[in-house]
C-alpha cells in the first residue's frame, strides 16, 4: 500500500504532500521522539500528537513514509514549513491514535 492509497482508505487530511508513492511498511505510535527514533522502521506510518518541527527531523532521520497527526491535532507553522522544505508527507485525522492505528492495521491487512 502506498501513502496515497492509505490517505484515500482512511480519509486523511493532507497538510503537506511529499512522495505519495512511498510504500507503507507498517506503523508506529509514539510521542516521545527517541522512542520513535529507536523503534520506528523505514516506511512506517508514524502516528503522533506531537506537532512541533522536531517531528520533521525525526521523520527524515528514520525514513518513515508519512506522519499522521491524530486526535485532530494541527501542525504548527514551523512544522508545516519544514515538511514542505523536506518534502515529507504530513497527514492528519480526527481519530484517536488507537482508532487510527486500528484503521491502519485493517487497511494493511486488506
Amino acid at each position: 500500500m502506498t501513502v496515497r492509497e492509505l490517505k484515500e482508505a482512511l480519509g486523511l487530511t493532507v497538510f503537506c504532500a511529499g512522495n505519495e508513492d512511498a510504500e507503507v511498511t507498517g506503523g508506529y505510535c509514539g510521542d516521545l521522539l527517541s522512542w520513535v527514533m529507536g523503534r520506528a522502521e523505514e516506511g512506517n506510518v508514524w502516528l503522533t500528537i506531537m506537532s512541533n518541527q522536531n517531528v520533521a527531523a525525526v521523520a527524515v532521520m528514520t525514513d518513515i513514509s508519512c506522519i499522521v497527526l491524530t486526535e485532530g491535532v494541527k501542525p504548527d507553522d514551523a512544522l508545516l514549513s519544514r515538511c514542505e522544505t523536506e518534502e515529507i508527507n504530513l497527514l492528519g485525522t480526527g481519530l484517536s491514535t488507537y482508532q487510527a492505528a486500528a484503521e491502519l492495521a485493517k487497511a494493511l491487512a486488506e
Partner: peptide, 15 residues
C-alpha cells in the same frame, strides 16, 4: 514538552 528527554538517546546511539 517537545518530546525529548525519554532517556533513550544514548541507548539508541549505542544500538
Amino acid at each position: 514538552d517537545l518530546g525529548f528527554g525519554a532517556g533513550m538517546g544514548l541507548p539508541n546511539m549505542k544500538r
